[in-house]
Design a protein around this nucleic acid. Sequence first.
RNA 1: GCGUCUGUAGCUCAGCUGGAUAGAGCAAUUGCCUUCUAAGCAAUGGGUCGAGCGUUCGAAUCGCUCCAGGCGUACCA
Length: 582
Amino acid sequence: MLREFFLNEVKSAVNSLVKNKKLGQMSEADNYNLQSEIPKNAQFGDFAVNVSSLSRYTKLPPVKTAEIIASEINKSDFEINVTAGFINFKINSFMLNKIVTEVLDKKLDYAKNDIGKGEKVILEYVSANPTGPFHIGHGRWAAMGSALANVMKYSGYNVYQEFYINDAGSQIQKLGKSLYIRILQEFEVKIDFPSDEEEAKNFYTGDFLIPVAKEFIKEENKRAKIIEETWNGNYNEEQLKYLSKYARLKMLSKQQKLLENFHTHFDNFYSELTLHESGKVEACIKKLSELGVLYEQDGAVWFASSKYGDEKDRVIKKSDGAYTYLTADIAYHYDKLQRGFTKLLNIWGADHHGYIPRMRAAVEVLGYNPDSLEVLLGQLVNLVINGEEVRMGKRTKMVTLDDLIDEVGVDATRYWMIMKSIDTTLDFDIELAKSKTDDNPVFYVQYAHARACSILRNASADKLDIVNNKMQSGNELDLSKADFNLLWTTGDEKAEETTKKLLLKLEEYKSAVQNAAKNRSPYLITKYLQELAADFHKFYTFSKVIVENEGLMCARLFVVKAVILILQSAMKLIAIEAPEKM
RNA sequence: GCGUCUGUAGCUCAGCUGGAUAGAGCAAUUGCCUUCUAAGCAAUGGGUCGAGCGUUCGAAUCGCUCCAGGCGUACCA
């Protein structure tokens, strides 16, 4: 990376000065927090390193310190100048041209890197109950999680994506009973969910089970008839069990289909039920018991998590003999650790944040580094319809992820879900996301790609016999016809300035990717995409690509192609389409 | 009460491992299509960075105290 390159220039200059004792009381450069940055004001240079923080060791004014260090740097492919405490670098056309050829050479892998060092990461996200349709919040986790997984894989992490199915416990029976009623209703039996609010809580009264009931009658007509015929006001235990399982699997498969459609692919769906059935929950409790962190009180079994940073102890086994949700979850995380993952990365809704200390406590007690558990807390999503915030409360009718995607489309939904930092409550404005105008960043970015593709099409269609990039005709452009130096001798200052900015932005993709992976912040990719698209549109405005001069035209065509490659790479990371025409 | 996230331009948000004049998009005003997609570009206006105190040569950024909002504070999942 160029940023790193210039930082290293400064560091090695410092080291050599230190060796010769020319820098006062300083030791090696790595002991100081030096950073390279891109100056906000381009007149200073293309890159800069601020060394004023070293002044307290050199006992010299910042400018003097910077000058001494700068004079120690051998400049070859760049210019150097000092302002205040900054050492500024201006790169030359040779380095700029190299950016283009490197992109063309590495293509979609241009920014691929290995900062993850192959760390075995299990990323768990969405993890919903199979008891209903996804709501829009699930959509945010799905979009963010899948994008993060892509970004981290691209950065050398070994990422395994898992969805934990909360398919154990009473809610599944509740689901079965509700389907039972919906089936009877299909047969026109006069029965409805309890009107009493308290009793209605034992059912899923949403209408999402109506189509499931219809499917059931179609697929299992015989059994459906038996259910209707044997109805006597009480649930038939055998049929209820069957329906519970049927509904559970049906809902799960609907969820899985939706996720794939939403460009979210899991390596595994891990069933909580199998966790119980395999005896892993029991085994985990036994282990905790042996470790001496469990005790009995008030007829329940407790985990002494408060000794490990939690604010109070937690119930593991309720006085009615059932396990809590936490118990299975501890066993699940134990299982993840035993499968050899060294980083347990979870995306949880902000409403679960109080849950972190107890899970950390469990990881620690089980003999692992509590820092191997890393939870990304996602703030919630509010829907904005016609400018008004619709809070997803119990009273309002839930808008499902399905509805949202139907309304807005997969790409726009994903983009809007990823666009904001996970720390901020997301206001999802349906009208804005739907709009195909300039207030919608998705289209801005996709339009840049379509526009670039169009140039390549036009170039191949009328002007030359070199051509299109692979997705068009399979041919490759002929690099030998391009004269990149012509980019910098046009006499058109604005054209050269915007071209330079564009090329530097291409190079910045590397930093964007690494920061996104390191900080678990996929929104940095959408931010980068918007910046790249903007720089491309500016380039387009000031540099006509298809021109008489063949050497210049080819050089610009290659710039365009490089832009297309980076746009595609970044859009692939966040899993949205890169349309060739719009 | 305690924990946690947030408070930056009219709106939505970046910037927050301290550093050059606080940025972007939208909205507003004004220009630019006989020339590669105007879903675009150029220009202009717009800010006591919630408030106060402190640390520092230097604070939107770090610390403390307030203020406002979201979420949580179960033998629910």
